[in-house]
Amino acid sequence: MVERKIREEFARALEERDGDVINRILSSIDEESADELLKDVWNTSTGKEYGGNAGSAFDEFKERIYGKRRNSGLSRTIAWISSAAAVIAIALCLFLALKPNHSVTRWAEMTTGYGKMDSLVLQDGTKIWTNAGTTLIYPEKFDGKERHVYVSGEAFFSVAKDPKHPFIVTAEGVNVRVLGTKFNVKAYNDESDVVTTLVTGSIQLTTPVSDSIYKLQPNKTLVFDRENGSVECYLNKEYNLPMWYCDELNFNNITLDEISRELERRFKVKIVLRNPKCASLRFYASFVNGENVDDILSSLNVKNEFRIVRKDDVIDIY
């Protein structure tokens, strides 16, 4: 029970609207007594004194629990940008939809997995063989002035003659421009060299580092090193022309390191050169009878220069 004196003082503070006295009284008595005083105030507060509008207070309440519906300056800007973007996108879609069909090129992609080889004939009659681990991107239908394809990996081209429509191969930055010919492009993205070898006809090459145009004669190979931008050109012996598409493998003064990468792709195995000395051994060899990877590696090892340990698809060379 609250003392009469405190009760009277509290009533006077309420009457005089003195918040500091109310605070002093409430904090000087125990919680039970404070509750008793507050309960009295609660019971005598009918709400009739409230001069505001409970409806607009409720609107403010909703705003507080849901956040402001009105957009802030920043979100207005974002809204403006997104509606502008939407208009542009719709215009672009309409433009693309109404554009004449022949100028839209539909591209196809062909990927050849490790341990596989593939070939296809393009719509113009050009035949392409793709070696293991190669991706070829080509249009379903050639239109326009040029016939353009993209290759990452190794491919042999037998291009159908059409002087009016030059055939262009883009391989890891190197452009090969041809009229009608047979040539090989080797441009794996994990190797720095892009090797182009011409078999018959003539081709023009450009590299990404200069404006120079290289003209290649038959049996010649051009090597562009993507790492240092150097260009090297040499004449091939007849037997060293790329014959992989006929299931032949030719190694001409090539390191075991390069050979093992070729074998990895061709036979879908992993070859680990444990000894750096082995990696730089050079070989001249030709395999034309469909030998498997074990045959090839043991043939290369006629001098017993290294040790071959095979476990499933992983071959370790020591």
Binding site: L14, R17, D18, G19, I22, L38, V41, W42, S45, T46, G47, K48, E49, Y50, G52, A54, A57, F58
Partner: peptide
Amino acid sequence: YPKVHSFAYRLTC
């Protein structure tokens, strides 16, 4: 709301 408001108004002044 009106009851709560007048209760709080009388106490906080």
